[in-house]
Simulated assay, not measured.
Amino acid sequence: MKTLKLLALGIVLFVSTSMQSQVSVNVNIGTAPSWGPAGYSNVDYYYLPDVQAYYDIRASQFIYLGSGNWVRSRYLPGQYRNYNLYNGYKVVLNDYHGKTPYTHYKQHKVKYYKGYKGKPQKSIGNRNYKHNNYSKKGNDHHKKGNGKSGHEDKGHGKGKH
């Protein structure tokens, strides 16, 4: 009988320990990704010129044009499966806090063309880390393009960097 009670107590302790570990899972919703540029706070979106897409920091989603509609997805579209988010330039839209950054897409696409490089950026996380959160879909290997340096943009929903 004592053995049965000890066994039951052991099972209860094991289950409670397992439940505790499930409860203490940390989810970083609304936190800038490790491939994001360091030194910015109160930012909701990045514009990624090389892939002509936005990244919604709060929702942890990419926003891109697909079949004529704006699509929100945890991953970039298939044609960018080899894109390296650490090496690509990110335009920080620190003056836009709405829900549809793509309303300024035509201006962003012209000003921040594919291959655009502004001021040098340092990623929040380790730049040499090759398997980031998006590597499951292959968004982790892209060669840098050359581009001109730009100037900060100061209004009307356009990005600063």
Rank of each mutant, 00 (worst) to 15 (best):
K158T: 15
H142V: 01
A59S: 11
K143F: 11
K90L: 10
S21N: 12
Y116N: 07
R81W: 10
V91C: 10
S24V: 14
N139S: 09
D44S: 11
N94G: 11
D95R: 13
Y64N: 04
V51G: 07
Q107S: 05
S41P: 00
V23Y: 13
G36W: 01
K114V: 14
L4W: 03
A53Q: 10
K136Q: 10
Q107A: 07
N28D: 15
K144T: 05
G30M: 09
Y102Q: 15
N28Y: 15
D50L: 07
K99C: 03
Y102E: 15
A53V: 12
G68S: 05
S41H: 05
G150N: 05
S24E: 15
G145V: 00
G118V: 04
Q61W: 00
K117L: 13
G36I: 01
Q22S: 14
K90E: 11
H97R: 14
Y96E: 01
K122F: 10
G10Y: 07
P120M: 03
Q22I: 15
Y96A: 00
P33R: 03
Q121I: 03
P77D: 11
H161Q: 14
R127F: 13
H141E: 05
V91E: 14
H131V: 12
N87V: 08
N139H: 06
G155R: 13
S34W: 09
Y40N: 00
P101L: 07
I63F: 05
G147H: 08
Y105P: 03
G150F: 06
Y55E: 08
R74T: 09
L9W: 06
E152D: 14
N133C: 04
Y46C: 02
S18A: 14
T31I: 13
V23K: 08
H161A: 11
L76T: 07
H156K: 14
S73H: 10
Y96P: 00
H156T: 09
V71K: 15
Q107I: 01
T103F: 06
G36V: 01
K5G: 00
A38N: 07
D153C: 14
L4P: 00
W70P: 05
Y64G: 04
G98N: 07
G10V: 06
D44Y: 08
K154T: 13
T17R: 04
K154M: 12
W35S: 07
W35A: 02
V110L: 04
Q61F: 00
Y113G: 04
G145P: 00
K106Y: 04
I29S: 09
